[in-house]
Simulated assay, not measured.
Amino acid sequence: MSDERRAWQMVLEHIEADLLSGALRPGDHLPSERALSIELGVGRSSVREAIRVLEVLGLIRTATGSGPTSGAIIVATPSGGMSALMRLQVAATGFAVSDIVKTRLVLETSVAADLAATEPRPDLTLATDLLDAMEPGEADATQLTINEFLALDTQFHLTLAEILGNQVIAATMAGLRSSVESYARVGASHLDSWADASARLMHEHRQIIAAIEAGDADRARTVVHAHISGYYAESHLTGQQLDQ
């Protein structure tokens, strides 16, 4: 194994360890390439290679430019191989948005209802932390880009499945992440007002959490169904085919 290969793998293992330990969480930005290069004693090319791998795995999203919204943002924590295999299948062929939406409706309404019916009530801190990251306070001048918001939005829905603990559902949703984000981004360009739409999405996210915390399974199922189908209808994506 070459020194260069060992170097980028060391960077990858370092970042994954921080993700697994909670030192880095969804919504956080990775340290800069320069900072990681100095900290780990490797070249910046090795850091870039590790970041590319993390992006392919769906753990981070990157944005170019300068300012608080640039760089690499954490959108997920490492999961099993099943979701990685499914991502490869998704990448190999496009899916109709309607099929993705129908799959989400089946899986995510069940997840929300099951969480609401669980006793004792599950700890939703990881999910609410994501909502807090998506909803900066009035004193915070940093606003998320549309892509950052939607990446965290997708992770919020996946996190609910992970909290439920059904590994098959969670892996399936993780495998569909890129497709879900893709249609959400396309849909955002069709909206009359992203500001109004994102505010409504946040309100609906909070309604989902409230229904689960109240133990109201029927309400949780209804709110999730309206949340997913409403965005699909509003963004006029009927018949859209996604090319991965």
Rank of each mutant, 00 (worst) to 15 (best):
A214L: 12
A195S: 13
T154P: 03
W194F: 07
Q89T: 10
Q89H: 11
E33I: 08
G137W: 11
D218I: 07
G175E: 11
L59E: 07
A63G: 06
V47K: 01
F95Y: 15
H157S: 08
A35T: 08
W8G: 04
A50H: 04
I100K: 01
R87K: 12
A184H: 02
D99A: 04
H157E: 10
P120S: 07
A214R: 15
R87V: 12
P120V: 10
W194M: 03
L24F: 04
A214Q: 10
H14F: 08
L191C: 08
L85G: 07
T77S: 10
S198L: 00
A23L: 13
V42T: 10
A92K: 12
S66G: 02
M1L: 05
V90W: 08
Q155C: 09
T238I: 10
E108Q: 14
G230K: 02
I208R: 03
E16K: 11
R44L: 14
T128G: 09
G22A: 05
P68S: 03
M173V: 15
N166K: 13
S37G: 04
T172E: 09
V53R: 03
S235V: 14
L191R: 13
A195L: 14
L30S: 06
K102F: 00
P136N: 07
P78T: 04
Q155V: 02
L191N: 06
S37I: 11
L130G: 03
R185T: 02
V180Q: 07
V186Y: 04
A184W: 00
H236A: 08
R5K: 09
A63V: 03
M82R: 15
Y231M: 12
M202Y: 00
S110I: 04
L158E: 00
T109Y: 00
A116P: 01
V106E: 14
A133L: 09
D216F: 04
L130I: 14
V90G: 02
F95A: 14
D28Y: 04
H205K: 01
L144I: 01
P31D: 06
S66Y: 04
T125D: 12
S66D: 01
V180K: 05
V97H: 03
R185V: 06
V224S: 08
T154R: 11
S37F: 04
P120T: 11
V11G: 10
D129I: 00
Q89W: 12
L30M: 10
Q9L: 12
D123I: 03
I74N: 01
D129G: 05
A117M: 11
A211R: 00
V168Y: 09
S235A: 15
E108C: 13
T118I: 01
I208F: 02
L24M: 05
D216K: 05
D153Q: 00
V56T: 12
R52P: 05
P136R: 07
I15V: 15
A76P: 00
T93Q: 14
A210I: 01
L152Q: 07
A217C: 13
L19F: 05
D28A: 11
S110T: 13
R219L: 14
K102Y: 12
A226C: 03
A7M: 08
R6V: 09
D18A: 13
